[in-house]
């Protein structure tokens, strides 16, 4: 009961925390792009949180390298629940062209549970916003 109330409260304003686990930086730039004047998702109450402890949604990019997985797990544990994980970009969704690499420990759903996948290399800001909207609609 308490959990579902909290989930309902989430719908009003999502705080996202963005975490890169061995990406090429492009998805990260496109996430920041969502905050700038052209897309401006702050209009909808979505903003970047400075610490994972204030976040409702974890936006994860990158393949998840061997050196990073421990940190990803730790950050996921620190995130207050209920929280959601969004895998952004082909690397986080499937491993992409790095799937055969020797440092590959992902894709992300092997490390932590994932709620939404946004494919693309990099996904456009519109695609990211659409993904977040789908996440919002799925919250019950």
């Amino acid at each position: 009961m308490v959990l579902s109330l909290r989930k309902k409260a989430l719908k009003k304003s999502l705080f996202v925390f963005h975490l890169s686990t061995g990406s090429c930086n492009n998805c990260d730039i496109e996430i920041l792009d969502c905050l700038t004047p052209r897309f401006d998702i702050e209009r909808f109450g979505i903003t970047l949180a400075g610490s994972v402890k204030h976040a409702d949604v974890l936006l994860v990019t990158g393949i998840g390298t061997l050196k990073n997985i421990e940190r990803v797990k730790k950050l996921y544990q620190q995130m207050p629940k209920p929280g959601f994980v969004v895998a952004i970009g082909s690397c986080a969704c499937t491993g992409g062209m790095f799937r055969d690499g020797y440092t590959m420990a992902g894709p992300l759903d092997k490390i932590i549970p994932v709620d939404v996948y946004i494919p693309g290399c990099p996904p456009k800001p519109e695609a990211m916003i659409a993904g977040i909207v789908k996440l919002l609609n799925s919250i019950k």
Partner: peptide, 14 residues
């Protein structure tokens, strides 16, 4: 360094 090491040079050889 080394947190973002994806082994690109090695993948490239294949």
């Amino acid at each position: 360094a080394g947190y973002n090491h994806r082994g690109i040079e090695k993948i490239s050889e294949s």
